[in-house]
Write a protein that binds this DNA or RNA. Structure first.
Lengths: 167, 167
DNA sequence: TTAAACTTTCAAAAAATATTGAAAGATTAA
DNA sequence: TTAATCTTTCAATATTTTTTGAAAGTTTAA
């Protein structure tokens, strides 16, 4: 496998993985491209390399910046904007975990809490609803605490977490 | 909030969450319905409660069974098939983690390994590609080991894992 | 000012994904 | 065997999501 093949394979794999994380293909591919690019890229560069439109590029770059994993960079004497990705993969993972907790986990926990707090009326169906949503609530809560602890850890958290769990 | 409101809220929340996990809305809703139903449900029951077609119900039930989180059940003297969900939420989480590792994580790890093994040719772009895909490979590998350890643990793994990490 | 260089917005079009429903396929009972 | 009951399949349709591209917006230089 040569450089171009490897690059394309990586970008397209990352692109299809994205879909499974609630991130669309173009967004994930832009991210992949920036991640392996030694230099910041301009919008034109990205459009050309991925063969996508200006509008698409603009919107997805914005989203990546909202996620906190892509940054604008200005080159001296140039009007054009350049973009880079967070290059430290552990920092990347932490940022993603943080955003997912905020966007998905926490809202879900709130709803589970509300639903599990309805009045017990003695029927089997109500009992079951309360029981199951309580169990889910408890698990989601634990997971969120766990994720946030992990986010607060230092740089090599993932290896450290692994060591702890194996012991 | 009364029973019906709570039930609908839970089913629709679970349904939209599903999308973010690579599971479609109908599939996630069927699962939610079965999870809070004290009795096994027939295909007719599910179609009626969720207002979806027979074909849709049939296909999504099959997928849920492929994921190992919904089971067929036969009532004595009845021809019709009934369905139940895995009711233990921790077992549910373990099953989902196991399947996601198998379907997504492991194939990705393989590709990252291939891509990071291309020949070093001294250029900056090749260096960066190798460096970043190696880092991702290492992280994905650690995560997979971590997930599989967790899967192998007993019933109350999540709380235990949390305790370990907090210490 | 104005013009040039660049970015964002958003309605329309395209592409991808999910859903339907009727026909074909199974399974069981008689 | 046939008929009844139930499930699966899949081409057609509907819905949702993504992408485009041109117009509007912004910023800077002169």
């Amino acid at each position: 496998m040569n450089y171009d093949e490897a690059k394309n394979k990586f970008i397209s794999t990352w692109g299809s993985l994205g879909t499974l994380w609630g991130i669309n293909k173009a967004m994930a591919q832009i991210h992949a491209l920036l991640l392996i690019s030694p230099e910041p890229l301009s919008m034109e560069d990205i459009m050309e390399q991925l063969q996508i439109s200006r509008g698409n590029t603009s919107m997805n770059l914005r989203q990546l910046m909202d996620w906190g994993i892509v940054f604008k960079e200005n080159k001296m004497g140039e009007r054009k904007e350049y973009f880079t990705s967070e290059k430290d993969v552990q920092e990347l993972a932490r940022q993603i975990a943080k955003e997912r907790s905020r966007r998905e986990l926490q809202p879900t926990i709130k709803i589970l809490k509300d639903v599990s707090n309805i009045d017990e009326d003695g029927t089997a169906k109500t009992k079951e609803l309360i029981k199951q949503t309580k169990a889910l609530h408890e698990m989601a809560d634990t997971l969120d605490i766990l994720m946030n602890r992990v986010i607060g850890q230092d740089h090599n958290w993932i290896t450290k977490a692994l060591v702890k769990l194996i012991k």
